[in-house]
Every structure is written in structure tokens, then in C-alpha cells.
């Protein structure tokens, strides 16, 4: 009897152990696959030609596989989106956490979670039919599908992440800080921006890092509004991101070709970017935990 129950206990333990470790296995699987399939093309093309080449022309002879345009476009696009999204997000978060009454707060929070829930292809569709023509007319350029349109769409898409994380950290600021400031004669609004916001700075930094991660990883909305030509980035020109470089050519790059392998290398570069951003995000999240 005792033996039987011990066997059961051990089996159950084994099953749960496997289930527990499965996330680790998945991360290893993804990393190993990306590294194995991404390295060969970089070797064959050459490190410098791949990372610093300005031309991407896999179908021309001789083929060219420079991904500098994609890297720079992704960096500029993400920076632009975060630059626009962060102030709007932070102001909204301060308003929600400190000033809004309960009804307005729940209303705006619903709006924010809806914004987070709208599928990226819907953002792409609306961007394609509303924003792109608008940009074309407003700046008098031949085609509105450009880096600018992508930045605007991305800045809307990063808003929910920035608002939610900032909001959580603003609400965790100890009440005594604010009360002290108010007692010394500062007005409420001054207190929110001079005391509460600096006190929540690790959380705000985490919010921005999360926004950067969202923006740099977005593919579908961006592919629909950015025009998708492999130009060096410029605000009013059609551009291609790291994500869209992978998604737009994967369907027709012939199996086993250098072209296809180069697309895997681009994915590897994107993955490395994401890992760096995740590390930054975790650093700030840990710091925030330490502060509270």
C-alpha cells in the first residue's frame, strides 16, 4: 500500500516537473533554432556586408544582402513611436492615478484595454485607409505609405503598455511622499509631477522599455502602412522594418537558398534586439520591486 502511493506521488511529481520545465524548453528551442538557422547566412555574406551593407537586393545578380536599412528603420521607427507615445502615456497615467474620479477612471481604463485588444491588422487597415492618404495630402508627397505613417500607428499601439505599467507604478508611490509635499505648500499638480513621477521613475522606465519591445516587434500593422521598400530610412519615404523584411519575403524565398537563410539571420538580429530590451525591462522591474 505504502509503496503504491509512493509510486503515484513520484509519478505525479515527475509530470509536474516536466510541465514546469516546459517553458524553459520552449525558450531554448526558440533560441537554438534561431541561432542555428541564422548564423550560416551571416557567415556566407560576411559580417560587415550583412550588418553595414546599405543595399538589400536578393533577386539581382550579384545578390546583395545589406540589412542596415532595416536595422536603422526599426530603430528610428521605434524611437519615433516611443517619443510620441511616452508623453501621452505618462500624462494619461498621471491623470488616471491622481486626478480622475472613479467613473472617469474606469471609463478611460476600459478605453485603454480596448486599445490593447484591437488586433494589429485592424490598426493596419485603418492606418492604410485613413492615415496614409492623410499623410500624403498633408505633406504633399506622392505616397503616404512611409516611415511617418508607421511611427504614428506604432505610437498608438504602444500607448496601452506605457499607460498600464506607468499607472501601476504611480499608484505604488507611498502616500507619505505626496502628503509631505502638500504639507510643505506644493499644489497637488506640482506634487504629482515633482514628487510622484520621480518616485515612480523605475516603473516609468520599465513602461518605456515595454513600449520599445512592442514597437520593434510589431509586423502586421507596420507592413500595411510603411510601403515596404528597402530604402534607407527617411521620414517621408517607403521603408522596411526588420519584422516586415522577414514577413514580406518569407513566402517566396526559395527553400534552402541564401535569400531564405538571410531572412532567418534578420530574425536572429531582431531576437537579439528583443533580448537586450527584455534585459533592460527586467532590470527596471527589479529596481522597482526593490524600491517599494
Amino acid at each position: 500500500m505504502k509503496n503504491k502511493s509512493r509510486i503515484i506521488e513520484n509519478t505525479v511529481y515527475g509530470i509536474f516537473l516536466i510541465l514546469g520545465l516546459i517553458t524553459v524548453a520552449f525558450v531554448l528551442l526558440i533560441s537554438i533554432y534561431l541561432i542555428i538557422s541564422g548564423i550560416p547566412a551571416i557567415k556566407e555574406i560576411g559580417f560587415t556586408d550583412f550588418f553595414f551593407g546599405k543595399n538589400w537586393a536578393p533577386t539581382k545578380t550579384p545578390q546583395e544582402f545589406g540589412i542596415l536599412p532595416f536595422i536603422l528603420t526599426s530603430i528610428y521607427g521605434t524611437a519615433g513611436a516611443v517619443l510620441i507615445g511616452t508623453p501621452i502615456g505618462i500624462f494619461t497615467a498621471v491623470y488616471l492615478s491622481k486626478m480622475a474620479n472613479r467613473r472617469i477612471k474606469s471609463l478611460v481604463s476600459t478605453a485603454v484595454s480596448l486599445l490593447a485588444g484591437i488586433p494589429s491588422v485592424v490598426y493596419g487597415l485603418v492606418g492604410m485607409l485613413v492615415l496614409v492618404p492623410l499623410v500624403r495630402v498633408a505633406f504633399n508627397i506622392p505616397d503616404g505609405a512611409s516611415l511617418l505613417s508607421a511611427i504614428i500607428v506604432l505610437s498608438v499601439m504602444v500607448l496601452p503598455s506605457i499607460i498600464n505599467v506607468s499607472l501601476t507604478s504611480l499608484e505604488a508611490v507611498p502616500k507619505e511622499y505626496e502628503e509631505g509635499s502638500l504639507a510643505l505648500g506644493a499644489k497637488p499638480v506640482e506634487t504629482y509631477f515633482r514628487i510622484s513621477l520621480p518616485a515612480a521613475k523605475s516603473g516609468i522606465a520599465a513602461a518605456v522599455a515595454l513600449g520599445v519591445g512592442r514597437a520593434i516587434g510589431e509586423a502586421m500593422a507596420v507592413i500595411m502602412v510603411s510601403g515596404n521598400v528597402a530604402n534607407m530610412p527617411s521620414l517621408f519615404q517607403s521603408v522596411r522594418f526588420l519584422t516586415t523584411a522577414v514577413s514580406s519575403e518569407m513566402a517566396y524565398a526559395a527553400g534552402g537558398s541564401l535569400h531564405r537563410q538571410a531572412l532567418f539571420s534578420i530574425a536572429l538580429v531582431l531576437f537579439i534586439f528583443i533580448m537586450i530590451i527584455n534585459a533592460v525591462l527586467n532590470f527596471f522591474l527589479k529596481k522597482r520591486k526593490g524600491e517599494n
Partner: peptide, 16 residues
């Protein structure tokens, strides 16, 4: 690992 998974963009999931 769980945090890493939630940060990976969907295009990379698609590829892998």
C-alpha cells in the same frame, strides 16, 4: 523563461 516568452514578437514565433 516565461518573461522571455511573453516578450518575443509574434513574427519570431511564426518563423520558429
Amino acid at each position: 523563461a516565461a518573461e522571455t516568452l511573453s516578450g518575443i514578437p509574434s513574427i519570431i514565433y511564426g518563423l520558429v
